[in-house]
């Protein structure tokens, strides 16, 4: 125990694709020394019950998140753009599915 303790292992965010054709989904985080190890650890921690067919690991510090204070200016302006949605338009029934 003579070597001075190094710092804590960095934190990684884990994304798992549950089956081929689906997107990778965030499922949690874990500590690992580096990306290669994080992948292995993620396999053991997050896919013990066949939850995944593919894993992404991302250093937690590499994630830039939007500021909750900006929620209003970022997301509210989309609320009145109802013409972006197909249901905004009425089409005669005889046209059928469109």
């Amino acid at each position: 125990m003579n070597t001075p303790a190094l710092k804590e292992w960095p934190l990684w965010e884990i994304f798992v694709r549950s089956k081929q054709g689906l997107e990778h989904k965030h499922c949690g985080s874990l500590h690992a020394a580096d990306a290669a190890q994080a992948l292995h650890m993620a396999r053991d921690v997050y896919t013990r019950r066949q939850e995944g067919v593919s894993i992404w690991v991302v250093p937690s510090i590499a994630i830039t998140a939007s500021n909750p204070d900006d929620k209003g200016e970022l997301f509210d302006p989309a609320a009145d753009k109802i013409y972006r949605h197909p249901t905004f338009y009425e089409i005669p029934e005889e046209v059928g599915h469109m």
């Binding site: 125990m1 070597t3 303790a5 190094l6 710092k7 292992w9 690992a32 020394a33 580096d34 190890q37």
Partner: peptide, 9 residues
């Protein structure tokens, strides 16, 4: 501790 240190080193 030494195991964790080794991985990081």
């Amino acid at each position: 501790q030494w195991v964790r240190d080794a991985a990081l080193a």
